[in-house]
Design a protein around this nucleic acid. Structure first.
Lengths: 222, 222
DNA sequence: TTTATACATGATGTATACAAAATTTAGTTT
DNA sequence: AAACTAAATTTTGTATACATCATGTATAAA
């Protein structure tokens, strides 16, 4: 109920933006696919105007690639671009972890540590989805506890951009256990407010995730 | 000639985007100012459509604030938001400096060190503008030598967002000399490929710049 | 057969027209 | 005089029409 109320408040172009983004993230629209304004408008039952706005909004996120006078396609980053994206996320999340060590409140840190325990629980006895959610929460809490909305927004934006590729990691067996072990290092460092260790551990954690994504994508010949 | 040729290749919405951004950066349009689509269209001799596109493009950069169904205004960040912006730039430029230490080529590093010398020269015997350009070059070279286009783009974007406020620093006497001294530490660390020192020095350097901007803006009652 | 040119087609960029919502203003009531 | 209501106005959101440029095709020339 509340959700549909929220949705009806959104403009058509915003709804289209959400819809197209979903199709890209879910792999229904693949990297390189042409995004013809008229075709999309016809399929999504709207006119070209809001479709155009949606495409340009997604281009600003980096999910869509627009060539002037030629048109829009689903962004198709090269492997090295994806590597660079993960590298930037790694640096920014590391920065967030540092700021948490420097100035988060004790209760905020306690919540992060508690969320790590929750990740452990879900990895041991939960579903893949429930672990995924717990993991997302763990990271979100760190971004948020860093006390810098600009940093948080940037990290969220970069993750939106990476989400079409993240899902591949689901397929890697044993990754959950590794991730939990890495989280433990991060949570420990944060609890001790050891920013140097937290930075290195977080950077390493995200870098490993990136490497796995690249490797899995390669194996799937993408 | 080449410049006008390039300009004529740009679409009207792109030209409007550049023009409106310039007016914001130059302070002709002030934070909080209403950006009425029809008024802008009439003044810039275009229709609402490309004006709308330009405003939304600038919103994605963070220079314009759009409230659905209400309209666009020049973004008016709070003081704490500007502080956060500088904090993120500091972290990202620090990350760039680190990556330069880790993997830039010797010639690239030599060019950065040389550019620092050029900054020293301009600070001693150049104009405010020529120093500003040399300083910009110094930072650009570091972003670029980090070998990560995504990181570079992010830093450029954040700096676009900050440029309306950066110009205040021009008014601070003695800042050039301080900045050059800080650059010296950064250049030294990079030359020695000492990433830990480079990170701290760069972060400190940008943080000081941010503090100065905030303080000057306060003194000018902005 | 290959290449070049001209035309036809189709898509993007821009302008205008219409719909819907927010704001303002005038009028009324307390 | 203050506050609330309702109509009028203004502005944003969307649809449609037109202009401009890119692409594909067919024809002709080398």
């Amino acid at each position: 109920m509340a959700l549909s109320t929220i949705k009806s408040d959104l403009s058509l172009s915003q709804l289209l933006c959400i819809q197209i983004e979903r199709e890209i993230v879910e792999g229904k629209l693949l990297p390189g696919d042409k995004l013809d304004e008229e075709v999309l408008a016809a399929r999504l039952k709207a006119s070209r105007t809001p479709v155009r706005e949606a495409l340009r909004a997604l281009a600003s996120v980096g999910l869509v690639h627009i060539q002037p006078r030629i048109g829009a396609t689903v962004n198709k980053p090269t492997v090295s671009e994806v590597i660079e994206l993960f590298e930037v996320v790694a640096e920014m999340e590391a920065a967030a972890a540092r700021l948490v060590c420097v100035r988060a409140s004790d209760p905020e840190i306690a919540k992060i540590v508690a969320q790590h325990k929750s990740c452990e629980d879900q990895a041991r006895s939960g579903t893949a989805d429930s672990y995924f959610d717990a993991n997302t929460q763990f990271h979100n809490m760190i971004w948020s506890a860093a006390g810098n909305h600009v940093l948080e927004d940037q990290i969220v934006l970069l993750n939106r951009r990476l989400s079409p590729y993240r899902r591949f990691v689901t397929f890697k067996p044993g990754r959950q256990e590794e991730a939990v072990a890495e989280h433990a290092q991060i949570a420990d460092a944060i609890q001790n407010r050891n920013s140097v260790v937290a930075v290195v551990a977080m950077r390493e954690h995200v870098t490993i995730l990136g490497s796995d994504v690249i490797q899995l994508a390669r194996n799937l010949r993408l």
